[in-house]
Design a protein around this nucleic acid. Structure first.
Lengths: 118, 118
DNA sequence: ATAACAGTTGAGCAATTGTTCAACTGTTAT
DNA sequence: ATAACAGTTGAACAATTGCTCAACTGTTAT
């Protein structure tokens, strides 16, 4: 088991605190997954799409009109939301409806709103 | 009161749905604020800093050692977290300790984790 | 068949972002 | 004074991101 090269340009000042925190920290990959999820919420277009879908299922054209975007722009964002398992497509003839695929989305919004308005 | 130029390259397909959703949608600036907040959570370094501070207050050097980063990199990220009112600094001599400034942070993490592990 | 339309996709561009580097404060000890 | 060290800051660079444009599917109607 090797040690990774140290990048830091300073020394530990409170070894006890660092060890305490290090013990309780999850492994690094969890933080990447968490950050990846929040990156998706970090765009106002995607947030508006998710918010809209939480009110009612919608097709690409309706979303585009609602948010005043091209259907291409909407489709690109929907692909990102699809890959993150946040929305699910459902084809009906020529039209593709998108549905919110996760009940946690609203809870995440609510916690965010609580921070903003305090 | 004028109408903004339309960008969309398609027409409404379900006017009733669009109107229903439009009625319940908050104004645009709220989505920018929400997205800005999640952008901050959208970086694994910042998430790890916040997680660490939730366990215990820490100074810049300790964070740098814990996460194997330069103190400059840590300081830059702490500035972003400070400006978003997510952490607060407290100077003690040469050392600056940072504290989590918001109880919602943990709740936001928890909701994110719930989505990842389902 | 073929036209019309909803939706998708890849390349490319402008804007944004995280880190590094180097120079700079602020506080403590000699 | 001045050296030492914790921390901050601005410029610069590489990498990423959101949108546009144009070309492409897939389904329905003529």
């Amino acid at each position: 088991m090797g040690f990774e090269k140290s990048i830091t340009d300073c020394n530990v000042l409170h070894e006890d605190i660092v060890e305490l925190v290090r013990k309780d920290m999850p492994e690094e990959s969890i933080f990447f997954d968490l950050a990846d999820l929040y990156t998706i919420f970090g765009d106002s277009t995607r947030v508006r799409i998710l918010w809209a879908l939480d009110i009612h299922d919608m097709c690409v054209c309706d979303i585009a009109v609602l948010l005043n975007l091209t259907k291409s722009a909407v489709s690109h964002q929907l692909r990102i939301l699809r890959q993150a398992n946040l929305v699910k497509p459902r084809r009906e003839g020529k039209v593709v409806f998108y549905t919110l695929a996760d009940e946690h989305v609203k809870a995440i919004f609510e916690k965010g709103m609580e921070h903003i308005y305090e």
